[in-house]
């Protein structure tokens, strides 16, 4: 997904010209923006997308849904971890035929504004491709399923930094999710976090997928992607085929120093692959 073999082949064969279509939004605190448009006419496919903005966008909890030709190409409630990077490194690769196609983009900011910002400017950048020779239709579809922890449990409702209850005392948090999708292959696992890497450094996780223990007190920081480390560099290989899998486990917060730490969020991201 984040390292598309198909595109590598096309680049090697000299069969592809890349371009971009940028869609910009101003989004305020606790606001939802929905926008209908059409893709440009001068390319064949959307082959990837990423997000960037004019501020530290990872401080907010912004989620996106992108529908092209009536098909969801970026799933609602999938977080926009790529906002962290503000660059081209973490592209979400898709393949969708698009030439003047309908495009619906929905952005939700689940947090209030702070630091005297009235809004933030977010861009959805579509990476486009025009092929010199026709290409075969895609046979697989990749998607990203995410599981989100919000700590403290009450959620982040004020400007950071906010003290975490019981700061200085390690605590645990159980999580239990059901993901939708039949006969899907769970390809990789990686994570994203907001704020403070020190928390990741000392935190561990137990993870079960359909009651199978996948991680046992595993260091969280090891497979967290961030501005230094791309998802494909830190991801863990799963290669499990599942139906509507249950994803559960326990998060062990290990940060012991009694100082103010930011409220924070952790996403576990599962890369899934499905036959078309």
């Amino acid at each position: 997904m984040y390292n598309s073999p198909f595109l590598q082949e096309q680049i090697k064969a000299g069969n592809i010209n890349f371009g971009t279509q940028v869609l910009s939004f101003n989004i305020g605190g606790n606001e939802t923006v929905e926008f209908d448009t059409r893709t440009d006419l001068d390319f064949d496919e959307i082959v990837g997308l990423y997000f960037n903005g004019d501020f530290y966008l990872d401080l907010w909890d912004i989620r996106a849904e992108i529908i092209c030709n009536g098909r969801i190409i970026f799933k609602r409630n999938t977080v926009i971890p790529y906002l962290n990077n503000n660059n081209f490194e973490s592209v979400f690769w898709v393949r969708e035929v698009a030439k003047g196609s309908t495009l619906r983009i929905r952005l939700e900011n689940l947090m209030p504004m702070f630091w005297e910002r009235d809004f933030i400017r977010a861009n959805v950048v579509l990476i486009t491709a025009k092929y010199k020779k026709p290409v075969p239709k895609p046979t697989f579809e990749y998607a990203l399923e995410t599981v989100l922890f919000e700590i403290p449990e009450s959620g982040i409702t004020d400007a950071p930094p906010i003290p975490v209850p019981n700061a200085g005392i390690p605590f645990t948090k159980d999580f239990d999710f059901k993901l939708e999708g039949t006969t899907i292959e769970l390809v990789n696992l990686f994570g994203y976090y907001s704020m403070n890497y020190k928390i990741m450094r000392r935190s561990t996780i137990d993870l079960y997928i359909d009651s199978k223990k996948v991680l046992n007190k595993h260091d969280l920081g090891m497979f967290m992607a961030d501005k230094w480390r791309k998802p494909h560099e830190v991801c863990l290989d799963l290669n499990l085929t599942v139906n509507n899998p249950r994803v559960n486990g326990t998060f062990y917060h290990g940060y012991e120093e009694a100082e103010l730490i930011y409220g924070y969020r952790i996403w576990l991201a599962l890369v899934t692959k499905k036959k078309l």
């Binding site: 890497y197 450094r201 920081g221 090891m222 497979f223 230094w228 480390r229 791309k230 560099e233 830190v234």
Partner: peptide
């Protein structure tokens, strides 16, 4: 050793 900037794979 992981130093926070490099990935475990590297």
């Amino acid at each position: 050793a992981d130093n926070g900037f490099k990935s475990w794979k590297s």
